[in-house]
Amino acid sequence: MNWPLKKKTNGDGTSNGHIIEMLGITKVYNTGKIKVEALKGIELVVDKGEFVAVVGPSGSGKSTLLNLIGCLDTPTGGSYMIGGEAVAGLDRDALADVRNRRVGFVFQNFNLLPQLTALENVELPMLFGGVGRRERRRRAVEHLERVRLGDRVEHRPTELSGGQMQRVAIARALAMEPDIVLADEPTGNLDTGSGSDVMSLLSELWGQGRTLVVVTHDQTLAKRAGRIVEIRDGLVVTDRRAVA
């Protein structure tokens, strides 16, 4: 097994501190009859340790952008470097390895595997990442404790509340200690209480030095971010950094 994208050793994992470097990224969905130009030339550079909120109206291309950042999909045009490595030309298994090592996803609808326990769900990325059985289990428990679900490890998703499920998803996203955590409207399906729990957890992660890109409609969450990127019609229209 060879990992095409080895982390470099200069501390921040990149040569210039840019963990995400997108230049002129376009994405066209070709659905047979019609072509949808979802992204029309995105320029986006994110440094290690940033907390970026992506906002914009529905259908503006936020999820598409997040999928491209997370290598879940490949751009139609432009160049994308993740952690200093070009993504273009990687095959499907190599992209899977990039996702496994560098990216943690948190989805609006949790996307846990229903027949697996919370623990097993958190173990899954480590199974794919080649972590041994014992180590997998130890780390999964640790991550679940960190999201305050140490007493729910053997529960299945159906036995958990929405907020708890999203916390399992966050634990899963962190399992492989990724460079970037991507969250697409993580509080969209939660009530206010669980929503703010999840928001606090995400802010905590940032506090621990992780890079975070979150798509949200939630004004409070957006305000916690150090940087707000607004997308409209497939283009970045504003990119504001909070004054420190």
């Binding site: 499907r92 899977a96 996702r99 996307n111 595997l113 899954l124 794919f128 899963r172 492989m176």
Partner: peptide, 16 residues
């Protein structure tokens, strides 16, 4: 299908 998508998202190879 969705579960397969999730597995892919967290890094499953095709063969897995």
């Amino acid at each position: 299908t969705r579960e397969i998508g999730v597995q892919m998202a967290v890094g499953a190879h095709r063969g897995w």
